[in-house]
Design a protein around this nucleic acid. Structure first.
Length: 273
DNA sequence: TACCAGGTAAAAG
DNA sequence: CTTTTACATGGT
C-alpha cells in the first residue's frame, strides 16, 4: 500500500457523517470504498493514510483534503460551531461521484443512514460491474440500471420503496439527455441547484445535499429535520422551508454547507435537541 | 404496536 | 401561495 501524511483529517468521522453510503469496513480500520466506477481501499493510522486502487490526488479530491479551514474563520466565534469544530475537526466535506450522490440522496428522503447504506449496496450489487480484486461491485451508470428489462422490480428488490419510480425516471431522463450531468457539473451553485430540481424525486433539500457532497458547492445549506431543530433551538430561526433556506444562507455565508455539516454531526452524535 | 426517518409531489385549502 | 397527505420500508 502507498501512503501519505495528513493533519486534521479523520477518515472514520468523515465516512460515517451521513454524506456517503457506499463503503464497507474490513478488518482493523481498512475501508473498501465504491465511488461511481472506482473502487479502492483506505486506512488511517494517526496522521498516515494508506491506500490502494487510486492515487493520492484522487483521495485529496474525494475527501476534500485541500480545503483551507481558515475560510471558516468568519464563523469561528459561534459557540455551537466552535464546540463542534473542536470535537470533530478532521471531518471533511467529500466530493463524491455525481450520479451516485444523486441516487443516494433520492433514497435519503424519509429514510435513515442504515437504510440508505443498504439501498446503495443493493443497487451496486444488482446493477454494477463486479470487481474481482476488491470483491465489490461498482456503482452503476444510468445505462446499466436501465439495461435489465424489469428495472422497476429490480429496484424494488433493492428496498428503495416508493423512490423506485423516481430512480427509474431519473435514469431515463439522463440517458435521453447525455450532457445533462456535465451541465450540472459545470454550472455554478444556482444553476446546478435548478438543474437538479428538474429531476423527479429531487426537491430543494436533496438538491442542496447533492450540490454540497457531489459538487463541492460550499454555500449549499441543506435544511432537513435536524437542521430545522438546530435553526430553531440554537439560532431562533423559524418559518417555512423557503424562509429557513434564505435565512440560513444569509446567516451562515459562503461556506454554510461546511458549517452545517459540523452542526448536523455534532447534534446527532451528542443526541442533542 | 405505533411512530418516525438527512422529503417530495400532488391534492386540497 | 401555504398546508396536508400518500408514499415503501425498516429501525427503535
Amino acid at each position: 500500500m502507498e501512503s501519505f501524511q495528513i493533519t486534521h483529517f479523520n477518515l472514520r468521522e468523515t465516512l460515517y457523517s451521513g454524506q456517503f453510503f457506499n463503503f464497507r469496513e474490513e478488518v482493523n480500520g481498512l475501508y473498501t470504498i465504491v465511488n461511481g466506477g472506482d473502487i479502492f481501499q483506505v486506512k488511517q493510522e494517526e496522521n498516515m493514510i494508506y491506500y490502494v486502487g487510486v492515487d493520492k490526488n484522487y483521495l485529496i479530491d474525494f475527501f476534500g483534503l485541500d480545503f483551507d479551514e481558515k475560510k471558516l474563520s468568519y464563523f469561528s466565534d459561534d459557540v455551537y460551531f466552535k464546540e463542534a469544530f473542536t470535537l470533530y475537526r478532521g471531518l471533511k466535506i467529500m466530493n463524491i461521484d455525481l450520479f451516485q450522490t444523486i441516487i443516494s440522496f433520492v433514497c435519503s428522503a424519509a429514510s435513515n443512514q442504515k437504510k440508505i447504506e443498504n439501498n446503495i449496496r443493493l443497487i451496486s450489487k444488482t446493477f454494477g460491474t463486479f470487481n474481482e480484486k476488491f470483491d465489490r461491485h461498482t456503482f452503476p451508470t444510468p445505462e446499466q440500471i436501465l439495461l435489465e428489462g424489469n428495472t422497476l422490480d429490480l429496484l424494488l428488490e433493492c428496498k428503495v420503496g416508493y423512490r423506485a419510480k423516481y430512480i427509474l425516471s431519473i435514469c431515463k431522463f439522463l440517458v435521453e439527455q447525455p450532457t445533462y450531468l456535465h451541465e450540472i457539473l459545470r454550472g455554478d451553485y444556482t444553476t446546478s441547484h435548478k438543474l437538479l430540481m428538474n429531476l423527479p424525486g429531487i426537491g430543494s433539500k436533496v438538491a442542496d445535499c447533492i450540490c454540497l457532497f457531489g459538487l463541492h458547492h460550499m454555500q449549499a445549506f441543506p435544511v432537513d429535520t435536524w437542521i430545522k431543530k438546530i435553526l430553531s433551538t440554537w439560532y431562533g430561526i423559524e418559518g417555512s422551508q423557503k424562509h429557513l433556506e434564505l435565512q440560513a444562507k444569509e446567516k451562515f455565508g459562503d461556506y454554510g454547507g461546511y458549517i452545517q455539516q459540523y452542526l448536523f454531526h455534532y447534534a446527532r452524535e451528542k443526541k442533542l435537541l
